[in-house]
């Protein structure tokens, strides 16, 4: 197997995730796209690990999974809070930073 087949797959998933983050309006959907990005990173880490024959990347992949779990927890809590206050979770309506 070539290293690149995994890396290109990772890159493709990453760019899909970026596209999703940018186009989705619903906050839950944005979080889903972020998971896509995180997964693509994990694929990269493990591919490099397999190439170099060591295990450091596995450790980082596990860390990323843990961080992703934490991120989803906090992210969904925030979405719930926004939903409770505004009765919708459309990110486009959150434009308090308009200059």
């Amino acid at each position: 197997m070539l290293l690149n087949q995994f890396l290109i797959l990772g890159a493709l998933l990453f760019c899909m995730g970026v596209y999703g983050v940018l186009t989705r309006k619903n906050a839950v959907m944005v979080l889903l796209s972020i998971e896509l990005i995180l997964n693509s990173v994990n694929i990269n880490l493990l591919a490099f690990d397999a190439m170099n024959g060591n295990s450091d990347g596995n450790v980082f992949a596990l860390f990323i999974i843990a961080v992703a779990a934490a991120e989803v927890g906090v992210g969904l809590a925030m979405v719930l809070l926004i939903f409770r206050n505004r009765k919708n979770i459309s990110l486009d309506d959150l434009s308090e930073m308009k200059g």
């Binding site: 983050v21 940018l22 309006k25 990110l91 308009k98 200059g99």
Partner: peptide, 17 residues
Amino acid sequence: LQPVQSGKVSMYGALLF
């Protein structure tokens, strides 16, 4: 330049990426 400061997170994200 004002439209750039739309306050929309997705727009800022697009600029960033």
